[in-house]
Write a protein that binds this DNA or RNA. Sequence first.
DNA 1: ATTACATTTGACCAGTTTTGTCAAAACACA
DNA 2: TGTGTTTTGACAAAACTGGTCAAATGTAAT
Lengths: 97, 97
Amino acid sequence: MSNFGDLIRIAREEKGLFLRQVAAELDIDQAIISKFERNERKPTKEQVLKFAKFYKLDKETLLVEWLSDKVAYDLQDENLADKVLKAAEQKIKYKKK
Amino acid sequence: MSNFGDLIRIAREEKGLFLRQVAAELDIDQAIISKFERNERKPTKEQVLKFAKFYKLDKETLLVEWLSDKVAYDLQDENLADKVLKAAEQKIKYKKK
DNA sequence: ATTACATTTGACCAGTTTTGTCAAAACACA
DNA sequence: TGTGTTTTGACAAAACTGGTCAAATGTAAT
């Protein structure tokens, strides 16, 4: 199962870059990027988009990864997760109409 | 489409109680309960359980309502909502293994 | 073992968001 | 108008986020 951190770590390694370099490019502290890559901290939406652009990753893919990490985290110790997701789906559909 | 606020407002009205009374019982400011009922503020999990107990509502039902409100709110302006929910579902399943 | 460099960790601060408290305003209705 | 209920908004306290930095740890070569 993939997650946001893995995606950006793999992208960085494929390009052979150091945290220091990415940090300089994106103007984000390297300690924070390290934490993002290990899923210890969640980036802001802005930051997600910065990563997508810099690593030339599909924006939507990265956003979905990021948001779903967050949702899964919120529901992690809820055995009601299935019901919650179904209910949320209905609510979102309803709002759209 | 139901939501947390409606459920507790209906429960209160069915029992013919005033906000003041519920506030005293649950030790929650009545202004806050008014906001919960109008979905203007989100309660904590503790508070959700207090309501379930006091109104004798099914705990699970109320928790699902509350959590799904939250998830739907988080995804409200994301047109990726469907994809996000599916991805989150996978992640939760995966974690359970 | 020491050096050189990369990554991770943790303490700290600042800014934001959330939560609770309260009183005044708005509402309902006899 | 008078009485009681609900809603609103301003405010403060508490909790949470996000960023900065330096020290600690890890890694590989010499």
